[in-house]
């Protein structure tokens, strides 16, 4: 069925009733995807899409997905950084769509860092 503007109206009504609209606050986990020339050329766009999709599908609250420019280690792009309150930043490198989905389920859901994809494991 074709998407219509009426459907967007329906989404708005549903969202406005739903008090639990995602809020930005200090307790949020931030997932940051590098989206500069280096990242985009290496495949950052599908990585971002996969993370947004997975976070949404699993209905993870208190997770915000954002984008940034060049992180400075272009040869290791696509790069994803995860900032959790009270913890050290974790940097994942050479990401692809599948690794990104795995990081959401392991790191964000099960609270286990996927060591093999981190910058520390990169050659």
């Amino acid at each position: 069925m074709k998407k219509s503007i009426e459907e967007l109206n329906a989404i708005r009504e549903r969202m406005q009733q739903n008090i639990q609209v995602r809020t930005e606050n200090a307790d949020n986990t931030r997932v940051v995807v590098g989206m500069a020339t280096c990242g985009i050329a290496a495949g950052a766009r599908p990585v971002l899409t996969a993370i947004v999709d997975e976070v949404n599908r699993r209905k993870l609250k208190n997770v915000t997905v954002t984008q940034t420019g060049c992180i400075g280690v272009c040869r290791l792009e696509p790069i994803v950084e995860i900032y959790e309150p009270g913890k050290e930043k974790v940097t994942y490198v050479n990401m692809d769509e599948n690794k990104a989905r795995q990081v959401v389920s392991e790191h964000l859901v099960n609270q286990r860092v996927v060591d093999e994809y981190t910058i520390g494991a990169a050659k």
Binding site: K3, E7, I11, R12, V21, R22, V55, N56
Partner: peptide, 26 residues
Amino acid sequence: ELAEILQGVPLNEPEVLQWIREYLED
């Protein structure tokens, strides 16, 4: 125009993004 319809619901809510994607693909 989409923001006017959404009346404060953020454009980057996942459901809204999904609608935009499908609208563009159509």
